[in-house]
């Protein structure tokens, strides 16, 4: 996992995401998922580029079944965008960096 992203667990989810003021992007992933591996470097770059404007967290669905179940995750990677702890949109699967940026910027602009 890159330095710019934060690993979140069932027990830290509330503090890290639900109580976070502003935007957060949660990547639901698993170690042995090919597409999850493909997008990992892109998410790390996005976390660095957005800095404080977007908190990027990663949830390993193998280890954190409670949160994955709560959000109805099926296919992974699944990326959910939150504003002030509330889900505003989600995307499933691989996209390139510019596609992710267009999606994030569009949603952040409201």
């Amino acid at each position: 996992m890159g330095d710019a992203t934060v690993a979140v667990s069932d027990s830290t989810w509330t503090d890290e995401v639900e109580n976070h003021k502003g935007f957060a992007l949660a990547d639901f992933w698993a170690e042995w998922c090919g597409p999850c591996r493909m997008i990992a470097p892109t998410l790390d770059e996005l976390a660095r580029e957005y800095g404080a404007a977007l908190k990027v967290v990663k949830v390993d669905v193998q280890e954190n079944t409670e949160i994955a179940g709560k959000f109805g995750i099926s296919s992974i990677p699944c990326l959910i965008l939150f504003k002030d702890g509330q889900e505003i949109d989600r995307v499933v699967g691989v996209k390139n960096k510019s596609q992710f940026k267009a999606w994030i910027d569009g949603k952040m602009a409201g």
Binding site: V61, A68, G69, S74, S75, I76
Partner: peptide
Amino acid sequence: GRPLCPCRFYP
């Protein structure tokens, strides 16, 4: 006992 797809989450 079965090769279940690892690219999904199963409750």
